[in-house]
Design a protein around this nucleic acid. Structure first.
Length: 684
DNA sequence: CTGTTGAAATTTTTT
DNA sequence: ATTTCAACAG
């Protein structure tokens, strides 16, 4: 096969615009790709094309939004290359640098961090750990004892993080995003100063540090040259969701734009709460005067009616890059706008349609239920479980964020880095007779001893702890020596932790199984540091996820937050709780910008659908907070579906009789005297 | 200083 | 429903 044939084979199936993007030369390139326009395919083929052109895979950097996205893309690159070469050669992409900004930062800093004075074995704190450390610092400064309430640790963290990621002054961030915290300006400064110092002395980096130090690395004269010299081509996906710090890293990494490819869609920017800014896309032409801009507008995903509806929704956005998405997929059903009476109604309707589609040959895994907030799917999850319908949930509380898993990992973390006081503060109070007070002094002792456990050996524990203390010491010493295999280490921790688990948590059995699973997983990692790093940077979203690639024959429905559904697509998509207050979230209606972001979020949800789209809106919702009886309120259809776009949907009002007839238990709020009383109570 | 109890406040999205 | 804080008994 000659070169021309090989190139043709590689470009097979791409439209002219995509080909142009794929075969673009070495000058900087921006691909503005609307939803469903084959953005991923284009990026995949471009990587394949570069490799086919002779670029060394080890000198390609592919920055994505999640690790999963990177792995998936590289898998597809291999597929394309194999097809083009018509041979089943070994994968060529194993040496490509693929991953999130944070993961790549970690890799670079492990290798070159020494030149910045970073310790070789730095630990990585996830969001919760960072908040915990901030809490420790806050109490050591005495801010928890002030007469007026100091902002919560989560708020402090959000503030700190936004300053770093948007590279903005605290005063500006306070004024723009946290006006109710302005009175604490001085204390916050002090807190953040102390937090930064503390991280340094503990040998710990948080998420923001990873970016910050990568930035420092490429800003440094000598180190910058080295790092820049590693890559011939840099490709960035989902650029609309990067923040200012990431943009500056990129600019310093590729100052002349040579070999740079950036892909994004301003209409899908949904991470401004993480300081992402569309300005990164809009300003790219200013950074690179010779930037080529290509727009992909041909939509391959949705049917015409779906596209008409999604275009209608985004058409109401106050400001956007003009794009006219057009479909080649032809006719299909108009998307459904389903007005449900309440949440049970919504659940029932969704499950009926899901099963119907499955009967018609659309596997569960080709269908997804999407929602704004993780808890919006609780009722549905309960009902799916009751009916034995398998599902995987993405987004929301992660496996590694559950208390018992965090506990277990804290033992490993402490052994890895004894100065990590967050790990210590987690483990020590698990023992009887040790509370926050003693834990703090103990943890400070080790930190002061430069990370040696000697002071603990000499410590005389209180009565209640006489038995447990020596056991903990021998456990930690065993782990510290790290002579055993990783699963064996986890096993030891489990043995020590089992009685604590049983005593402190309910449903200890289920939690125990999680930990067993963790022990199994441990075998997959090269070493302890790798395991801790990877779990911090890329937490598996569910236990099922941890269990490894699912069996081919097992079919499961996907439940996902809209954020976690970014970049994915399904044949049938169900969007739950399309009511004002949920989308847009009540918590995000403070400013017009926030509302616009919620609109894009809704747009992202709708554009995940290929053939069938159901938007469900329960009009009545219950909230069980605030004491006796269940109260409820009435919701309005989301403001993103005003009368003007409603005709793009077919309106559906499910009937109860049909739904409940053959399954009385499905009717969980029958119209009984109770409902009558409730309606009466509505009058006041 | 620990561990428990009760009251009050807050309640999203994620690397 | 969960988290956080203050108060109090051991």
């Amino acid at each position: 096969m000659n070169d021309t044939e090989a190139i043709d084979a590689l470009l097979e199936g791409l439209n002219p615009r995509q080909r142009e993007a794929v075969t673009h030369g070495r000058g900087p390139l921006l691909v503005v790709a609307g939803a469903g326009t084959g953005k991923t395919a284009t990026l995949v083929h471009r990587v394949a094309w570069l490799i086919a052109q002779g670029v060394d895979p080890a000198r390609i950097l592919l920055l994505t939004f999640t690790r999963r996205a990177a792995a998936e893309m590289l898998r597809r690159v291999d597929g394309v290359l194999r097809r083009a070469e018509r041979l089943g050669g070994a994968p060529k992409t194993s040496r490509v640098w693929g991953g999130t900004f944070h993961a790549v930062a970690t890799r670079l800093l492990r290798r070159f961090g020494k030149s910045l004075g970073l310790p070789e074995g730095f630990s990585i704190h996830d969001r919760t750990d960072s908040e915990d450390l901030l809490h420790v610092v806050r109490s050591s400064l005495g801010f928890d004892k002030l007469d007026r309430r100091f902002p919560k640790k989560g708020t402090c963290m959000a503030l700190y993080s936004r300053c770093v990621n948007s590279q903005a002054k605290l005063a500006d961030v306070l004024a723009r995003h946290f006006p109710w915290c302005r009175e604490w300006d001085a204390q916050l400064k002090q807190l953040f100063d102390a937090y930064v110092d503390r991280k340094e002395s503990l040998g710990v980096l948080d998420y923001d540090d990873l970016l910050l130090f990568w930035h420092a690395l490429v800003s440094d004269e000598a180190a910058g040259r080295t790092v820049r010299g590693l890559f011939d081509c840099v490709l960035v996906d989902e650029y609309q969701d990067t923040n200012r710090l990431q943009a500056e890293i990129l600019h310093r990494l590729v100052p002349d734009g040579k070999g740079l490819t950036v892909v994004g869609d301003d209409a899908q920017s949904i991470y401004s709460f993480r300081a992402a800014t569309v300005r990164n896309i809009l300003d790219l032409p200013k950074q690179y005067p010779d930037l080529a801009v290509l727009t992909l507008e041909q939509n391959y995903r949705g049917t015409e009616p779906i596209l008409a509806a999604t275009n209608g929704v985004i058409g109401l956005a106050s400001e956007r890059y003009a794009k006219n998405l057009w479909s080649t997929r032809g006719q299909g059903e108009r998307p459904a706008l389903v007005t449900c009476e309440d949440e049970d109604d919504q659940t029932r309707y969704a499950i009926e349609r899901i099963l119907e589609h499955r009967e018609a040959g659309i596997d569960l895994r080709r269908q997804a239920v999407l929602f704004r907030a993780s808890h919006h799917s609780m009722t549905l999850e309960a009902e799916l479980a009751r009916r034995n319908i398998p599902f995987h949930k993405y987004g929301g509380l992660k496996f590694v964020e559950t208390a018992h898993v965090k506990d277990l990992l804290a033992f490993l973390r402490l052994a890895e880095n004894p100065r990590d006081i967050v790990a210590g503060m987690r483990i020590l109070p698990l023992l009887p007779g040790i509370g926050p007070g003693r834990a703090r002094t103990l943890v400070e002792m080790v930190a002061a001893a430069g990370g040696r456990f000697d002071p603990w050996r000499a410590w005389c524990p209180p009565e209640a702890c006489r038995g447990a203390w020596p056991a903990l010491m021998s456990l930690l010493e065993g782990l510290f020596a790290a002579k055993e295999s990783l699963p064996a280490q986890v096993h030891r921790v489990r043995e020590f932790y089992a009685p604590i688990l049983a005593e402190r948590y309910d449903n200890a059995a289920a939690r125990g199984r999680d930990l067993e699973q963790l022990e199994q997983i441990a075998a997959r990692y090269r070493d302890r540091q790798t395991m801790l790093t990877e779990l911090a940077l890329d937490p598996p979203s569910s236990t099922q996820d941890l269990a490894g690639p699912p069996e081919l024959d097992d079919d499961y429905l996907v439940l996902s937050t809209i954020h976690s559904a970014k970049g994915l697509e399904w044949d049938a998509v169900y969007v739950l709780h399309a009511a004002d207050g949920n989308i847009p979230s009540d918590l995000a209606t403070g400013s017009p910008e926030e509302i616009e972001e919620e609109r894009r979020l809704f747009y992202v949800a709708l554009t995940r659908a290929k053939s069938w789209l159901y938007v469900l809106c329960p009009l009545r919702y219950y909230h069980f907070s605030g004491g006796r009886g269940d109260r409820h309120g009435y919701a309005q259809r989301t403001r993103f579906l005003p009368e003007s776009v409603v005709p793009l949907f077919r309106q559906v009002v499910p009937t109860r009789e049909a739904a409940g007839a053959d399954d009385p238990s499905a009717l969980r709020t029958p119209l009984t005297s109770r409902a009558v009383r409730r309606q009466t109570k509505d009058l006041w």
